[in-house]
Structure formats: structure tokens, C-alpha cells
């Protein structure tokens, strides 16, 4: 039954985190954001294999274009056989050929990685290069 918790976010919360001192949280987050850079090297493009459609745990079609609420397409709920199948096929195909850009903390895409915050001074570090 409902746990009030979306399985998409399993392992995605840190209930104990708010109890940690702010500095400790920041340090840990900075470390986490820095470490993956060593193992996330998407350029040159890594070798790919076909993505199993079962690996797509959720698919949100459309761009969304509302400034106030987050919207969800419901078409696929009611006409899944044809429409849902077509979208899924297009998505899996796109996963096979689109260029990958990693974004967010630890990202190494075209956009520069976010500035790391100096934990001690709490000020942004400036890339001097």
C-alpha cells in the first residue's frame, strides 16, 4: 500500500541529513559532487549498448509549458497500446544515438561543471584557468 514515497526516489533521501551540522553536510556534498568527476568521463563518447526498454522506469512525454504547476501527460494512460508503444520506441531509439551531456553536480558536459563551494569560507571557488 501507499508509503507516501515514490519508488523512483528510493534511496534518494537522507532522512538523517538534516540532523547533521551544516558544515558537515556541505563538506560531504562537495565531496560527493567532486568524486564522480573522476569516474564520469563521457567525452569522448563512451561505447554504448542498446538500452533495454525495461530500464526506462518512467517516461514523461512532452516539454511541459506551464509556469505554475508541473504537468503530466495522461494520454498514455488511456491509449497505451499504440501511442505508448510508439513513444517508447522513439525514446529507446533516441537513447541509442543522441549525444550525451552530463548535467548537474559532477557533470562533465559541454557546460562547465558547477563551481565548488569552499567549505571553510562558504564562498564560491573561482576557476583560475
Amino acid at each position: 500500500m501507499g508509503s507516501g514515497f515514490n519508488p523512483l526516489y528510493d534511496g534518494d533521501t537522507r532522512p538523517d541529513d538534516l540532523a547533521r551540522p551544516r558544515r558537515q553536510r556541505l563538506r560531504r556534498r562537495v565531496i560527493l559532487s567532486a568524486r564522480p568527476i573522476q569516474c564520469r568521463l563521457p567525452m569522448p563518447e563512451p561505447a554504448r549498448s542498446p538500452v533495454d526498454p525495461r530500464s526506462v522506469r518512467a517516461l514523461r512525454p512532452g516539454h511541459g509549458a506551464n509556469c505554475s504547476s508541473i504537468g503530466s501527460v495522461v494520454d498514455t494512460l488511456f491509449v497505451t497500446a499504440l501511442l505508448g508503444g510508439a513513444i517508447f520506441a522513439a525514446v529507446v531509439a533516441a537513447l541509442g544515438h543522441e549525444r550525451i551531456e552530463v548535467v548537474g553536480p559532477g557533470g562533465t558536459g559541454e557546460n562547465k561543471a558547477p563551481p565548488e563551494r569552499d567549505v571553510e569560507s562558504d564562498a564560491p571557488k573561482v576557476d583560475s584557468t
Binding site: 537522507r14 560527493l32 538500452v51 522506469r57 518512467a58 550525451i100
Partner: peptide, 29 residues
């Protein structure tokens, strides 16, 4: 394709990528 999707770890690995410490850290993220 105008879409956002949640891909599991196997799917990400199929793209040749790995979540590194975010995935290996046993503490909740």
C-alpha cells in the same frame, strides 16, 4: 524527442556511463 525519462542504473550503464560514488555509497543519497 520531447520527453524526460527515468533510466535505471542498468540503462545508464548501457550508455557507457556509471554513477560512481553516488551509486556505490550505501548511505541514502
Amino acid at each position: 524527442v520531447p520527453a524526460v525519462l527515468a533510466l535505471d542504473r542498468e540503462g545508464v550503464r548501457a550508455l557507457g556511463l556509471d554513477g560512481g560514488d553516488l551509486w556505490s555509497d550505501t548511505r541514502p543519497a
